[in-house]
């Protein structure tokens, strides 16, 4: 008779992805392509912000976009009209991207001559926070109508991002949204977080955002 025994594995399921993400980060470094992972709830303004970002930076660098956000009223075609290189990723109903899917996307896009790639992640604040995509930097958007208590509800997301864009600042007067409270809550979770209020609609704050990207790419190149 076979004798069954207990065999310990003790392996974190995310470990493989974490390793893969580190590898992808190195590959991108060698290829000189800076990857920004952009996350938010659906409708916070990721695509609109991507369009503004391309507009602000396209004269200075080659820009690519990985579009993984499916339920959006502005899609890959809209982004393509800006002249940036864009590819729509088919996530097959997945609610996040992992490093391998990101690598496949980058291969499909082709990063030759591309200095800066924005990954518009799937719209949700839970799952993408757990999966390192291999991005050089991580950004999230919180829009004013979503409310100022989001950092309390999604602490993990706020803890892993380098920069927080507070979007739709143009409508702040119509909402009960305490900007200072959000800043304080986010900083409590993540003391190093950079916070930039913007309006992807009016263009307010986009200069500061574009500058943040320029600076981070420069630092990254010198690392």
């Amino acid at each position: 008779m076979d004798t069954y025994k207990i065999i310990e594995i003790k392996q974190s399921v995310f470990e493989d992805n974490n390793k893969d993400a580190d590898l992808l980060r190195e590959e991108l470094k060698k290829g000189k392509t800076f990857l920004l992972n952009l996350m938010s709830s659906p409708g916070s303004g990721k695509t609109t912000t991507v369009l503004r970002t391309i507009e602000a930076l396209k004269e200075e660098m080659g820009i690519g976009v990985l579009e993984a956000d499916i339920d959006s009223d502005v899609d890959a075609r809209t982004v393509a009209q800006t002249g940036a290189k864009v590819i729509q990723l088919h996530t097959g109903g997945m609610c996040h991207l992992d490093a391998d899917m990101t690598r496949q996307g980058l291969l499909g896009l082709g990063t030759e001559g591309i200095d800066f790639v924005i990954l518009e992640n799937v719209g949700n604040l839970v799952c993408p926070a757990e999966f390192d995509t291999g991005a050089s930097k991580n950004a999230m958007i919180l829009s004013v109508p979503e409310g100022d208590d989001k950092p309390l509800k999604y602490p993990l997301m706020f803890s892993i991002v380098d920069v927080l864009l507070i979007n739709k600042i143009d409508v702040i007067d119509y909402f009960d949204f305490d900007l200072e409270a959000v800043k304080e809550r986010a900083k409590k979770i993540n003391p190093n977080i950079k916070i930039i209020p913007i309006s992807a609609r009016t263009g307010e704050g986009i200069d500061e955002w574009a500058n943040w990207i320029r600076t981070e790419i420069k630092k990254w190149k010198q690392e």
């Binding site: 076979d2 004798t3 069954y4 025994k5 207990i6 065999i7 310990e8 594995i9 003790k10 392996q11 974190s12 399921v13 995310f14 757990e130 309390l152 602490p155 993990l156 409590k188």
Partner: peptide, 20 residues
């Protein structure tokens, strides 16, 4: 207070198998 730090609970591990 709502000011706390997570100690554990985010794990997702393959703990063990019973096999031969």
């Amino acid at each position: 207070s709502k000011d706390w730090e997570i100690l554990c609970g985010r794990e997702f591990m393959i703990k063990e198998i019973i096999a031969c």
